[in-house]
Amino acid sequence: MGVFIWHDWARFVSLAASIYLVWAGYWAIFYRKFFWDIVGGIVRDPGGIQPSRGAEPFISVIVKAPIIQIMVIIVSLITLMVELPAPFIKGTSIYRSWTLRIVLLIFQAFLGVLLYQGTNGALYSLIAAYGYTMAQMKGETMPEPKKGGGRGDRA
């Protein structure tokens, strides 16, 4: 009945997902674990899962060096900058683009799902990306940002 504006909703989910992933990426630097190491891995006592040979490339960028973690943090921070938006992005074509947001969200979901801590964030990112896809399909557009912002007009 009421008009559900997809991009307004997707923005909140996207904010939640991106903040989740920044936080998850931070913790993943200290507790490094490849989420899919269970595939073909064996459990050693103590020591936990020993990943199979096939997982070697992932282990080298997640456990040996926290590269994916740092990438997840950077991409999520970029998403946050677009979503909040940062002052220098407000009003630019980047700010008005759904496609860019969908790409960023899917990318951060892809990175997030590799990490033990990042799967929920990845799921929320995909939900947000779905929201933006719906916004794209419905032809929603981002309105020009209000000067001064805030809820002052409600007074």
């Binding site: 507790y31 269970i38 459990v43 103590p46 020591g47 936990g48 899962i49 033990y116």
Partner: peptide, 17 residues
């Protein structure tokens, strides 16, 4: 998330995270 990865590593319970 920290608890379960530590359980897995130390194997104080024979479970994975």
């Amino acid at each position: 998330y920290v608890n379960f990865i530590r359980v897995e590593q130390t194997q104080i319970r024979k479970q994975t995270a």
